[in-house]
Every structure is written in structure tokens, then in C-alpha cells.
Amino acid sequence: MGLLSELKLIVPWGHIAVKVWGSQKNPPVLCLHGWLDNANSFDRLIPLLPQDFCYVAMDFGGHGLSSHYNPGLPYCFQNFVSEVLRVAAAFKWTRFSLMGHSFGGTVSGTFACMFPEMVDKLILLDAAPLLLESNEIENILTYRRRSIEHMLKVEASQKSPRVFSPEELLQGLLSRNSHLTKDCGELLLQRGATKVTEGLVVNRDKRLSLPENIFDFMSKDQFVHSTRRLQASVVMIKALQGYFDVRRENDNIKQPLLFMVDTLRSTLKERFQYVEVPGNHYIHMNKPQTVAAIISPFLQGLPRKTSSRL
């Protein structure tokens, strides 16, 4: 199944760029990429999935080929959630499935809890549907302050975008993302950078910094309450060598993930599937066949295998 079209959906600050695979007459699946990634994140996975669906991969605002937010408008988590609703409205979807990797998975999970009647199936790729504050409560105000200070600093800067050589940009990306292979890094940069006379400039908005600066963290009670609103069937695919926490400093603390999985399992019962797979955070790019073998029967509503437990 090849890429069908590239579209630009008009929004108040410009446009949201999307890629479309399959007929728009088929049931839609909206695909949300990770922090600072882009829609190319799904290029290797989508062709392996059932062809009787329409897959739409979007670039979040400030990422990939989507417009940057206007000066003075901050990147906050709820804005990214609202982008999902904007895309659904543009396609006139009343019900659809969501597939999200990492940050995109958390946006997907939050949307599915806020607009439960709209989401049929929820696919989480090395992602938590909502983020607990248990590891972060003492840091939340620091994150909020850091986000504001960074935004004002970037907006006050008059520097021209830095120009990189292709090799320099790729090596920088790989050094910051040890789970990315060279091929996958090159794939993301095809959409994440623009050619200029002297080399390449990065497309993403410089105001975007660390994901924890804009995440909405919640208590365990809030998580339980939110999970009860879910109407979707959920599959959570956890990479064994992936990440367990939004901050790598806490990555050896797995209790929040255990709590989330247990809550989802006890609340959703047969509507929840948890699967652990060997691989790292970019499992959907590095081993798309492994991920597709789990997602395909889930999308088609086929009998599921027994969940793999933590």
C-alpha cells in the first residue's frame, strides 16, 4: 500500500501537514508521531498493515511540514490534543482509531479519554495513555518555568536558522536519539529538514524543547477516573528496551507503568491488550514487521492472543 497523497489542512495559525495511505472511504486510523519526530515515523509500518483502512499520519504543529504556532502562542499539551480534533473535523470523521508513538501515544490516550465517543481503537507504541505525576510532582513547576523562559528566549532571538551539512545534522540526531538507526534517522530528516543553498535547516520550531515541559501530569486518582471514560479497545505495545518514564533519570522506576497497566486491565478487561516485544523505543521503525503482526489483528477485530504481563 503506497502513499496516496500529501495534504495541508487549514488551521488558524497556518496548516497541519498530513500523509494519507488508502481510500478515504475506508475506516480511518490517525497516526501521531513522537516528540520532535514527524509523520515519516510511520512510513515503514503502515504499508504492512491491513489495506482496508485509511491511514492518516499528521505532523504536529511546529514539527515536520506543519506550520509553527504564532509568536506568543505557547506549545502546551492541550493544544496538541486539540489538533487531533481539528484533523478529524477536516476529514469529517465522527469515529476513528488512533495510533500513537511515545508523545503521540499520550496525546492519543488523552484524546480518547476526553472524546471517548469518537475513538474506536487505541494503539499505543511504547507510550503511556496518560502520564502520572508520581515521579514528577516536585519538578512540575520547574518544567512550567523552563518552558516559559525558553519560549521567551527563542522569541527574543534574532538569529537566523543554523545551517547544517547533511552528515552533521544526521549525526546530531543520532547522538540525541540512541535508539534510532541511521536509516530511520535519514527517513525522519527527509521531512524534518529543508534544503537551502548552504546545506540543511531544521524544520521544527525552536521553541519546542523537552517534552516534560508541556506534558500534563495527573494523580493516580485522576488516572483511574480518566480510564473509566475510555470506550475504545486498547492495545499497549511495550518495547522491552524502550523507555519507562518521560525523564531518562527515572527510567529504572517502573512502578508508574505497572500501575497504569493494572488499572487499564482491571477497568477495560477484554478491551485491553498489553504486549511486550524485544526492541527499543523506535520499535515501530526498526522492527515494523513485529509491530504490524500485533496491530493488524487488533484493527481487524480478530481474537487476540493472551496479554504478556510485566
Score class of each variant (00 low, 15 high):
residue 132 L to Q: 05
residue 277 V to N: 09
residue 287 K to Q: 15
residue 106 T to H: 03
residue 189 L to M: 06
residue 58 M to S: 09
residue 112 A to R: 04
residue 67 S to K: 07
residue 218 M to R: 07
residue 142 T to E: 11
residue 293 A to R: 15
residue 146 R to P: 00
residue 198 E to W: 07
residue 52 D to R: 15
residue 84 V to A: 07
residue 271 R to V: 11
residue 217 F to L: 09
residue 11 V to D: 08
residue 262 D to Q: 14
residue 36 L to T: 14
residue 37 D to A: 05
residue 123 I to F: 05
residue 224 V to N: 00
residue 31 C to P: 03
residue 250 N to P: 01
residue 289 Q to P: 00
residue 177 N to G: 11
residue 310 L to H: 13
residue 205 D to F: 08
residue 299 L to R: 02
residue 115 F to Q: 13
residue 298 F to P: 06
residue 251 D to C: 00
residue 299 L to V: 01
residue 309 R to L: 15
residue 87 V to L: 08
residue 192 G to F: 11
residue 56 V to E: 09
residue 46 I to A: 02
residue 199 G to N: 03
residue 86 R to L: 15
residue 74 P to M: 08
residue 207 R to E: 02
residue 62 G to D: 09
residue 220 K to T: 08
residue 61 G to E: 10
residue 177 N to Y: 13
residue 212 E to F: 10
residue 206 K to Y: 06
residue 83 E to C: 02
residue 254 K to H: 12
residue 287 K to G: 00
residue 115 F to W: 11
residue 108 S to V: 05
residue 212 E to M: 15
residue 148 I to P: 01
residue 21 W to G: 02
residue 186 E to M: 10
residue 269 K to A: 14
residue 152 L to R: 14
residue 18 V to F: 11
residue 130 L to V: 09
residue 124 L to I: 11
residue 229 R to Q: 09
residue 256 P to K: 04
residue 101 H to E: 08
residue 276 E to M: 14
residue 152 L to Q: 13
residue 157 S to P: 05
residue 83 E to H: 02
residue 292 A to E: 12
residue 101 H to R: 05
residue 263 T to H: 02
residue 114 M to L: 14
residue 233 S to Y: 09
residue 294 I to R: 11
residue 261 V to Y: 04
residue 147 S to L: 08
residue 171 Q to L: 06
residue 255 Q to S: 14
residue 254 K to R: 15
residue 179 H to I: 01
residue 53 F to K: 09
residue 32 L to P: 05
residue 5 S to F: 03
residue 147 S to F: 00
residue 100 G to R: 06
residue 200 L to S: 06
residue 245 D to T: 13
residue 11 V to L: 09
residue 168 E to K: 07
residue 205 D to R: 04
residue 11 V to M: 06
residue 235 V to R: 08
residue 13 W to N: 09
residue 63 H to K: 01
residue 127 A to H: 03
residue 96 F to A: 05
residue 155 E to Q: 12
residue 75 Y to H: 04
residue 253 I to W: 13
residue 65 L to S: 03
residue 31 C to Q: 12
residue 108 S to Q: 06
residue 90 A to N: 01
residue 127 A to T: 10
residue 268 L to Y: 04
residue 209 S to A: 10
residue 303 P to G: 04
residue 182 K to F: 07
residue 102 S to L: 07
residue 171 Q to A: 12
residue 227 T to R: 00
residue 9 L to Q: 03
residue 207 R to K: 09
residue 184 C to K: 00
residue 267 T to D: 01
residue 93 W to A: 02
residue 60 F to W: 15
residue 67 S to M: 10
residue 204 R to Q: 14
residue 55 Y to E: 08
residue 47 P to D: 04
residue 161 P to N: 02
residue 306 T to W: 03
